[in-house]
Amino acid sequence: MTALPEYAAHPTPLLDAQRLSKLYPVKGSAKGTLLHAVDDVDLRIGAGECVGLVGESGCGKSTMVRLLARLIDPTSGQILMGGKDITGMTQAKFVASPDRGRIQVVFQDPTESLNPSFRVFQAIADPLRRLLRLSDADEIATRVNRAATLVGLPRELVQRYPHQLSGGQRARVGIARAIVVEPELLILDEPTSALDVSVQAVILRLLADLRARLGMSYLFVSHDLNVVRLLCSRVVVMYLGKVVEVGPVEQLFANPRHPYTQALIASIPDPARRREARPRLDGSPSSPISPDPNVCRFQSRCPRAAAECVTTMPALRDLGGGQSAACHFA
Rank of each mutant, 00 (worst) to 15 (best):
residue 175 I to K: 15
residue 330 A to F: 08
residue 201 A to Y: 05
residue 286 S to I: 10
residue 85 D to M: 12
residue 197 V to C: 06
residue 114 L to W: 11
residue 261 T to D: 09
residue 112 E to K: 15
residue 85 D to Y: 07
residue 34 L to C: 15
residue 80 L to Q: 14
residue 60 G to M: 07
residue 172 R to P: 15
residue 246 V to T: 13
residue 112 E to H: 11
residue 4 L to E: 10
residue 327 C to L: 06
residue 298 F to L: 08
residue 7 Y to G: 04
residue 79 I to G: 12
residue 260 Y to D: 00
residue 113 S to D: 09
residue 119 R to T: 12
residue 209 D to C: 01
residue 301 R to D: 05
residue 165 L to F: 07
residue 217 S to R: 00
residue 127 P to L: 00
residue 62 S to K: 11
residue 36 H to C: 06
residue 203 I to N: 00
residue 117 S to I: 15
residue 130 R to V: 15
residue 222 S to M: 03
residue 95 V to L: 13
residue 289 I to E: 02
residue 139 E to G: 04
residue 125 A to H: 07
residue 106 V to D: 06
residue 100 R to S: 14
residue 238 M to S: 03
residue 129 R to T: 03
residue 286 S to K: 13
residue 296 C to T: 02
residue 278 R to W: 00
residue 193 S to F: 04
residue 177 R to E: 00
residue 113 S to K: 08
residue 274 R to W: 08
residue 103 I to P: 02
residue 68 L to Y: 11
residue 85 D to E: 12
residue 278 R to S: 14
residue 122 Q to G: 03
residue 213 R to S: 14
residue 228 V to W: 01
residue 166 S to Q: 13
residue 278 R to Y: 09
residue 151 V to M: 02
residue 23 L to F: 15
residue 192 T to R: 04
residue 245 E to G: 09
residue 274 R to A: 14
residue 36 H to K: 14
residue 25 P to F: 08
residue 246 V to W: 03
residue 286 S to M: 14
residue 117 S to Y: 13
residue 118 F to I: 02
residue 327 C to E: 05
residue 50 C to Y: 02
residue 180 V to H: 01
residue 83 G to I: 04
residue 275 R to W: 10
residue 104 Q to T: 04
residue 262 Q to T: 08
residue 302 C to N: 02
residue 315 A to E: 12
residue 8 A to L: 15
residue 237 V to M: 05
residue 202 V to Q: 15
residue 137 A to H: 11
residue 13 P to R: 13
residue 32 G to F: 10
residue 196 D to G: 05
residue 59 C to K: 03
residue 167 G to S: 08
residue 100 R to I: 11
residue 283 G to E: 08
residue 317 R to M: 08
residue 316 L to W: 05
residue 295 V to P: 01
residue 178 A to G: 10
residue 61 K to N: 02
residue 282 D to R: 13
residue 28 G to I: 03
residue 257 R to D: 01
residue 201 A to L: 09
residue 72 I to N: 13
residue 263 A to S: 07
residue 29 S to M: 13
residue 227 V to A: 10
residue 249 V to T: 14
residue 152 G to V: 04
residue 118 F to P: 00
residue 271 P to S: 11
residue 327 C to R: 07
residue 42 D to P: 06
residue 261 T to S: 15
residue 275 R to Y: 06
residue 312 T to V: 13
residue 94 F to P: 08
residue 232 C to Y: 04
residue 189 D to S: 08
residue 254 A to V: 05
residue 300 S to P: 02
residue 79 I to C: 14
residue 111 T to S: 13
residue 62 S to D: 11
residue 313 M to H: 03
residue 163 H to S: 05
residue 133 R to M: 07
residue 325 A to T: 03
residue 178 A to S: 10
residue 200 Q to F: 02
residue 18 Q to S: 11
residue 82 G to V: 00
residue 213 R to A: 12
residue 79 I to V: 13
residue 87 T to F: 00
residue 215 G to Y: 09
residue 4 L to R: 14
residue 304 R to P: 01
residue 288 P to G: 01
residue 60 G to Q: 09
residue 124 I to Q: 11
residue 241 G to V: 01
residue 171 A to G: 04
residue 243 V to Q: 06
residue 79 I to R: 05
residue 67 L to I: 09
residue 183 P to F: 05
residue 187 I to T: 05
residue 314 P to Q: 01
residue 330 A to E: 09
residue 204 L to D: 03
residue 136 D to S: 08
residue 251 Q to S: 12
residue 53 L to H: 07
